[in-house]
Amino acid sequence: MKYSLLVLLFAFMLNAQAQEKYFAKDAKVYFLSDTKLEKIEATNNKGVCVIDATTGAMEFSVLIAGFQFEKALMQEHFQENYMEMSKFPKATFKGNIKNFGTIKWAQDGNYEMEVVGKLTLHGVTKDITNKANVAIKSGVPMAISSFEVLCADYNINIPSLVKDKVAKSVKIDIAAKLQKLAK
């Protein structure tokens, strides 16, 4: 009987730990295609993100429709011709923070994270590994990451006519102010 109580206690502990989750519903995603001829930028302030601090699992999702460009025509071409939004409305990432054990979420500090997982974009899923950073200040974690996406990897064709204006590799910056999930 003592043994089973111990197991029960252990299970409860696990349960309590499992509630350490952080989320953001207004993560900022910045898109930049920079060439000598044209700079194309867009932002999306509606990125959704959840990080499970106990397992290191994380997910990120963003709607293609939410990217705002300076030029309406660029936005239309982004949605219609490049991302084919009606077929692939979302871009998602599902992965793990490899060194999640080293992050002390309750303590202020700066942590390097190594994130590995699958990025799904334009209907194509690829494994990616990327560095990210989380800065915890007065208990509020701010996660940032920056990476490059090669258009060809995700079957995004750039017509030869505009090949000097649209970058083959676009830069993505992500910033998410995380909140602790209350349960």
Binding site: A18, K21, V50, A57, E59
Partner: peptide, 12 residues
Amino acid sequence: SSFAQEDLLSIL
């Protein structure tokens, strides 16, 4: 419960 964690975003 670990299965339930498979889809993290659904908890939102």
